[in-house]
Deep mutational scan, measured.
Amino acid sequence: DDWEIHFNNITIRLHGVSEEQIEELKELIKNGAHEEELRKWAEEVNR
């Protein structure tokens, strides 16, 4: 699925990401992940 997530003036566009991966991302954000951590997560997902 395609997703677009907005938070802290950042837009993250995701393509072909599962519901499970979105839940992981929500947890990262909820736990106060920094932009660098989110980038690493996105790189892993996009492999």
Results as ranks from 00 to 15, higher is better:
residue 26 K to N: 07
residue 37 E to S: 08
residue 5 I to K: 03
residue 11 T to V: 10
residue 32 G to K: 03
residue 17 V to Q: 01
residue 16 G to L: 12
residue 22 I to T: 03
residue 13 R to M: 07
residue 34 H to P: 11
residue 44 E to P: 00
residue 32 G to A: 02
residue 44 E to Q: 12
residue 27 E to D: 08
residue 28 L to S: 00
residue 21 Q to R: 08
residue 42 A to L: 14
residue 36 E to M: 09
residue 3 W to V: 10
residue 33 A to H: 03
residue 39 R to N: 05
residue 37 E to K: 05
residue 15 H to S: 10
residue 38 L to F: 05
residue 36 E to P: 04
residue 23 E to F: 13
residue 2 D to E: 14
residue 36 E to G: 06
residue 42 A to V: 13
residue 16 G to K: 15
residue 25 L to T: 00
residue 38 L to N: 00
residue 18 S to K: 07
residue 27 E to V: 13
residue 40 K to H: 07
residue 14 L to S: 02
residue 8 N to V: 07
residue 14 L to G: 02
residue 37 E to T: 09
residue 2 D to V: 15
residue 43 E to C: 15
residue 45 V to E: 02
residue 3 W to L: 08
residue 7 F to E: 01
residue 44 E to H: 14
residue 19 E to I: 12
residue 13 R to V: 06
residue 18 S to V: 03
residue 9 N to Y: 14
residue 22 I to D: 00
residue 41 W to A: 03
residue 15 H to Y: 15
residue 19 E to P: 12
residue 41 W to H: 01
residue 46 N to Y: 13
residue 13 R to H: 10
residue 5 I to Y: 09
residue 10 I to G: 05
residue 13 R to A: 04
residue 11 T to S: 05
residue 3 W to S: 02
residue 15 H to C: 09
residue 24 E to K: 09
residue 45 V to T: 06
residue 39 R to K: 09
residue 16 G to T: 09
residue 25 L to Y: 05
residue 6 H to F: 09
residue 37 E to F: 13
residue 28 L to H: 01
residue 2 D to R: 11
residue 27 E to A: 13
residue 25 L to Q: 00
residue 34 H to F: 05
residue 6 H to S: 09
residue 35 E to T: 06
residue 11 T to I: 13
residue 41 W to G: 00
residue 29 I to Q: 01
residue 18 S to G: 05
residue 17 V to T: 02
residue 11 T to E: 03
residue 7 F to S: 02
residue 31 N to L: 07
residue 32 G to I: 01
residue 29 I to H: 01
residue 39 R to H: 07
residue 27 E to N: 13
residue 38 L to H: 00
residue 45 V to I: 12
residue 35 E to C: 11
residue 43 E to K: 06
residue 28 L to Q: 01
residue 46 N to H: 08
residue 24 E to H: 10
residue 34 H to C: 11
residue 37 E to V: 10
residue 43 E to D: 11
residue 18 S to C: 04
residue 7 F to W: 10
residue 7 F to Y: 08
residue 33 A to G: 03
residue 12 I to H: 05
residue 16 G to E: 06
residue 5 I to R: 04
residue 37 E to R: 06
residue 38 L to G: 00
residue 44 E to W: 07
residue 1 D to M: 15
residue 42 A to I: 15
residue 10 I to L: 13
residue 21 Q to K: 11
residue 24 E to V: 10
residue 12 I to R: 05
residue 10 I to K: 06
residue 35 E to I: 14
residue 4 E to A: 07
residue 15 H to M: 08
residue 17 V to D: 00
residue 10 I to Q: 05
residue 45 V to F: 14
residue 32 G to T: 01
residue 45 V to P: 01
residue 3 W to A: 03
residue 30 K to R: 14
residue 15 H to D: 05
residue 44 E to G: 08
residue 42 A to N: 01
residue 24 E to Q: 10
residue 46 N to W: 15
residue 1 D to K: 15
residue 42 A to F: 12
residue 15 H to K: 12
residue 42 A to E: 06
residue 11 T to R: 06
residue 35 E to M: 07
residue 11 T to L: 14
residue 21 Q to S: 06
residue 2 D to K: 11
residue 31 N to Q: 10
residue 19 E to R: 15
residue 25 L to V: 04
residue 28 L to M: 09
residue 26 K to F: 15
residue 39 R to T: 06
residue 24 E to L: 09
residue 14 L to Q: 01
residue 32 G to P: 00
residue 32 G to L: 02
residue 15 H to I: 11
residue 39 R to Q: 10
residue 21 Q to A: 08
residue 25 L to W: 04
residue 15 H to A: 06
residue 12 I to T: 03
residue 10 I to C: 13
residue 21 Q to I: 13
residue 28 L to E: 00
residue 46 N to G: 05
residue 10 I to N: 03
residue 20 E to H: 10
residue 37 E to W: 09
residue 6 H to G: 03
residue 37 E to L: 07
residue 32 G to D: 03
residue 39 R to L: 14
residue 15 H to Q: 07
residue 11 T to A: 02
residue 29 I to F: 07
residue 12 I to L: 13
residue 7 F to T: 03
residue 35 E to L: 12
residue 34 H to T: 15
residue 38 L to K: 00
residue 45 V to L: 10
residue 4 E to D: 08
residue 47 R to C: 12
residue 29 I to A: 02
residue 26 K to Q: 06
residue 44 E to S: 09
residue 47 R to W: 14
residue 5 I to M: 08
residue 47 R to K: 14
residue 16 G to V: 06
residue 1 D to A: 14
residue 18 S to R: 10
residue 31 N to R: 14
residue 2 D to M: 15
residue 17 V to M: 09
residue 25 L to A: 02
residue 20 E to P: 04
residue 24 E to A: 09
residue 34 H to D: 14
residue 12 I to G: 02
residue 41 W to N: 00
residue 26 K to S: 05
residue 23 E to T: 11
residue 25 L to M: 04
residue 47 R to I: 15
residue 7 F to I: 10
residue 8 N to F: 07
residue 9 N to F: 15
residue 24 E to G: 05
residue 39 R to D: 03
residue 30 K to N: 06
residue 22 I to F: 08
residue 13 R to C: 09
residue 25 L to N: 00
residue 28 L to V: 01
residue 21 Q to W: 05
residue 44 E to K: 14
residue 35 E to Q: 04
residue 10 I to D: 03
residue 13 R to I: 09
residue 3 W to K: 03
residue 46 N to D: 08
residue 47 R to H: 13
residue 1 D to Q: 15
residue 16 G to Y: 14
residue 39 R to W: 13
residue 9 N to E: 07
residue 41 W to R: 02
residue 34 H to K: 13
